[in-house]
Structures are given as structure tokens and as C-alpha cells.
């Protein structure tokens, strides 16, 4: 029997901010807006999430920085960016004018740097949310600070005290207990959690005996990590009350729907954008088709609907 056509509503609200769709770009995969804007109508993006910006400019790692792997890719870009001041003068004015929500992703070497970044951005208009990239190993101290719940809690609390912009805390999957990282962030004032960042991985050229990335190891992303990401989002959504934004290997509308079913309120599309510049818009349209097929009117009605 043919199903009736229903009116579908993709809007969602996170931390009091309304988004046209729950499908956003992911940090580091859509630049700072300029490039992606020529390929996608920003009005149809849920949000534009910027490449991580740091206090000082970072040159990034040497080439080769990426390698294609089975079902995904490794990257070791090294957070190349022009630093916060150049970001504010060169990029923010255009981002502000983009008819979409703007999420600025920030990264620091220590807690103080996150605080300084948040303070500096608080003076600027047009930023809807901040996303703290707490998923980067602190090479200097030799520990992965983002996988320590205490550190995550402290950092979140300090940034919370420094700004009124709503905060998303982005978590690393390189831990054995992502739920406690999420709890630490939620307990210290995060408005939402996003997960996952990339998984540590490596590729070797067996002919030359050399690593395929100049940085030796890198971060794995793409379809290969979707199962890991789904499990992470599932665990986080059961551990915290604040919204969860699912990331990892989303290539299609049904992939996005799976993340919503396990408890995400929104998703970010990363690696898929390299294949199709307008991937986030395609995913949103396919999600709409999926809702139509399942006769689900409001996208929020999918959230956490997993049947055990």
C-alpha cells in the first residue's frame, strides 16, 4: 500500500539554539567556510563547524598527511591553522554572514589556552556555539589529556566560567571509558557532547619499509569507524542528559538515522565531504526521505528510538 506523504520537520534545538537540520559539517573537513560555501547552499546546512583554531598559528605536519585505507582514511594534518587573531580578522566576518549556524572549534595545548580562546571569541558576535576539541594528544606532556576524565572536567569548568557561548565538548574515542569523559564534561557545564574524533591508526609501506604518513601515526575516519562511533554515542547518550552529536563515518541519510536511533540529537559529516562537497546536504535530504518512508514527522522523534 502506498504510504501517504507527510510533512517532515528536520529542525532541532540544542542549548537553546535552533538548527534547520540535524546534519552539520565536521571540524577539519569543511575548512573555515569559504571553500564549502561555493559547493553548498549554507541555508541547507544544519551548521558549519570550523577547522580547529588555536591561539598561535600552527604550520601543521609535513606531507604525506593522508592515506586512504580500507573503508576510510588516516590523517595527520597537525591542526594547520592561522591562529585565533587571523581567524577573527580573515574568516569570522564571512562566517558571520553565512546563513547557517556557526560552530567554532577550538584547540589548545593546555587548559589555559582553551580559556584564552573562549574569552577572545566571547567578544565576537555571530558565534552560535563553541566546540572544544579535547581529543588531541598533548605531545609535550606525553599523555593524552583528553582521555583523562578529571582533566576533561576541569577544562570544561574553566571554559564554562570564561564564556557565555554554549559549549560542545568533543571527545576522543581513544579511551576505554568514553562515558566517564562525557559525564565529566556534562557535570562541569558542557551544553552538549560530540563524539567521536578520529581513532589512532597507522599505515606502513611494506615495499619501502616506511610509514605512509610523515607523522608516522594519524587519525582514522570514514565508514570504517562507524560501528565504533555508534557504540560510543550509544554509551554516552545513556550516561548523560545533555544532547549528544554523533560523528563518525556518516555517508548517507540512513547512517545519520542510525546515530539518531542510538541517541544522538544531531550528527556531523566529515570524511564524506571529501567525496562529495555537498555531502552534508545530501545526508539531510536522504534523512528526510528516510523519515518519509517510516512516516516520522519530526526528526526529534527518531532520537533514542533504538529498540533493544
Amino acid at each position: 500500500m502506498p504510504k501517504s506523504t507527510i510533512k517532515t520537520d528536520l529542525t532541532i534545538t540544542i542549548a537553546g539554539v535552533e538548527f534547520a537540520t540535524p546534519v552539520w559539517t565536521a571540524s577539519g573537513t569543511a575548512g573555515v567556510g569559504e571553500e564549502i560555501e561555493s559547493w553548498c547552499d549554507p541555508k541547507r546546512l544544519g551548521a558549519m563547524v570550523t577547522k580547529s583554531v588555536s591561539l598561535q598559528p600552527r604550520p601543521g605536519h609535513p606531507y604525506p598527511r593522508t592515506v586512504e585505507t580500507t573503508g576510510g582514511m588516516l590523517n595527520a594534518i597537525g591542526l594547520q591553522n592561522k591562529g585565533i587573531e587571523a581567524f577573527i580578522t580573515d574568516e569570522l566576518p564571512r562566517l558571520r554572514r553565512m546563513p547557517t549556524r556557526v560552530v567554532v572549534n577550538i584547540v589548545g595545548d593546555d587548559q589555559d589556552e582553551y580559556v584564552q580562546l573562549a574569552k577572545r571569541l566571547s567578544d565576537e558576535a555571530g558565534i552560535d556555539l563553541l566546540e572544544l576539541n579535547l581529543s588531541c594528544p598533548n605531545v609535550a606532556r606525553g599523555i593524552d589529556q583528553g582521555s583523562d576524565p578529571m582533566w576533561v572536567g576541569e577544562c570544561t569548568a574553566k571554559v564554562r566560567a570564561a564564556t557565555r557561548i554554549p559549549l560542545i565538548v568533543k571527545l576522543t574515542p581513544n579511551t576505554n571509558d568514553i562515558a566517564s569523559l562525557a559525564r565529566a564534561a556534562a557535570d562541569h557545564g558542557a551544553d552538549a557532547i560530540s563524539a567521536i574524533n578520529t581513532l589512532v591508526g597507522m599505515a606502513v609501506n611494506h615495499n619501502t619499509f616506511k610509514p605512509r604518513l610523515a607523522n608516522v601515526t594519524g587519525g582514522l575516519s570514514g565508514p570504517a569507524i562507524k560501528p565504533v562511533a555508534l557504540a560510543a554515542v550509544y554509551k554516552i547518550a545513556r550516561a548523560v542528559k545533555i544532547p549528544v552529536i554523533g560523528i563518525g563515518g556518516i555517508m548517507s541519510g540512513t547512517d545519520a538515522a542510525e546515530f539518531l536511533l542510538v541517541g544522538a540529537q544531531a550528527v556531523q559529516v566529515g570524511t564524506a565531504t571529501f567525496r562529495h562537497p555537498d555531502a552534508a546536504i545530501r545526508v539531510a535530504e536522504e534523512l528526510r526521505d528516510y523519515m518519509q518512508e517510516h512516516q516520522i514527522a519530526r526528526v526529534g522523534d527518531l532520537v533514542g528510538r533504538l529498540t533493544l
Partner: peptide, 17 residues
């Protein structure tokens, strides 16, 4: 020439010093 994941400037993968 570089290995080019995106080709339109967003990934920062295809760099030359």
C-alpha cells in the same frame, strides 16, 4: 601533484612546503 582527498581546499592534505 599530491594525493588529494578533497581537491577543493578543505582537508589540508595536499600540501607542499
Amino acid at each position: 601533484e599530491r594525493s588529494m582527498p578533497c581537491g577543493f581546499g578543505v582537508c589540508m592534505g595536499c600540501v607542499v612546503r
